[in-house]
């Protein structure tokens, strides 16, 4: 509202009562604050644009030296050692193996704890457990990485003695543990948002607590639950530290989770830490891999939003 009073208020009308509606406060802040807030918002947008721009230009340069077909369909990744080859499939398979193991761990456990918290837990219990879960989400991932290496890996080697010190299973399990709080928290929000009246309707028909949870609450909250699963998936794909520490650095096209592998993120770390000269082809690989990663998570996030809208059982 910017109607500005440019002339003194005229007394008009028949009313004998005189009220003055002229502004008493300075509006200076109201003019500056929106500009400041806009700049803050613009900053993050500009950063995003900058990142995407760098990724695109560097990736473009890389693909002038390496054929995009070799990159996408090659089965051998060894950009640092001769004979060089730039097939991204081993990195992709490593990433997806970690992600799938993580989701197998995180989605059932996260969902089960969400059902417990939303349908069974006493208010007081929920008040204690939820913050604890959120603390779990705040643990630095490097800590999880050493947790995998020093606790989970020995356990796995106790069962399968042939397992390498670095292996996909251990890292995958721990990535899964790391994203349980996210799955749990988002699913719990979705389930708590299911109106009480629906639960009452089912209870009044003689449903037990478990039947209400499974057949009323979960279906009604499905869009939120699926969205949380997709976000978990994309979080697992992007996870870096745990896999760098625990999964090894052996790009390998394998289906055996007990072997050492390398993910896209761990590869980027490996190159960034080395002394790869700026502008070299090896240097270019990290942008190509970064771009691949970016496109995958970007598509997954769009999928999560689409799913959240599409599967809404409205209530």
């Amino acid at each position: 509202m910017r109607s500005e009073v440019t002339q003194p208020m005229k007394a008009s009308g028949k009313s004998p009562i005189k009220l003055d509606f002229r502004n008493e406060k300075s509006h200076l802040l109201d003019k500056i604050v929106p500009i400041l807030l806009f700049l803050c918002a613009a900053l993050s947008i500009l950063t995003t644009i900058g990142i995407v721009f760098t990724l695109i230009t560097e990736t473009f340069q890389f693909f002038q030296k390496v054929s995009i077909m070799d990159y996408l369909f090659g089965t051998k990744w060894s950009p640092l050692i001769d004979p060089k080859s730039f097939g991204v499939l081993p990195l992709l398979s490593g990433t997806f193996m970690i992600t799938i193991i993580a989701c197998i761990v995180a989605i059932p456990l996260g969902l089960a704890s969400a059902i417990y918290l939303s349908e069974y837990a006493h208010k007081r219990v929920r008040k204690i457990i939820k913050p604890i879960l959120e603390v779990l989400a705040g643990v630095p991932t490097i800590v999880y990485g050493y947790f995998a290496l020093s606790l989970i890996t020995p356990l796995i080697r106790g069962i399968f003695p042939d397992t390498g010190v670095f292996n996909a299973l251990s890292a995958g399990i721990v990535v899964g543990i790391m994203i349980i709080p996210m799955v749990c928290s988002l699913s719990e929000d979705a389930m708590s948002a299911v109106p009480r009246s629906l639960r009452d309707g089912a209870y009044a028909l003689g449903a037990t607590r478990f039947e209400v949870a499974l057949k009323i609450v979960v279906p009604a909250a499905l869009s939120g639950i699926v969205a949380s699963a997709v976000l978990a998936f994309s979080r697992a794909i992007g996870e870096t530290m745990i896999v760098t520490v625990a999964a090894g650095a052996t790009p390998k096209l394998t289906a055996d989770p007990l072997e050492s592998i390398q993910t896209m993120t761990a590869y980027i770390v490996q190159v960034s830490m080395g002394d790869t000269p700026h502008g070299s082809i090896e240097y270019g690989t990290i942008f190509a891999v970064g771009m691949t990663l970016f496109i995958i998570t970007f598509l997954l996030n769009i999928l999560a939003q689409y799913v959240a809208r599409r599967f809404r059982e409205e209530y």
Binding site: S197, I216, E314
Partner: peptide, 14 residues
Amino acid sequence: KKVGMVFQQPNPFP
């Protein structure tokens, strides 16, 4: 099951 109930707000399942 033997004592059914209908609520104030219609609450059909989605």
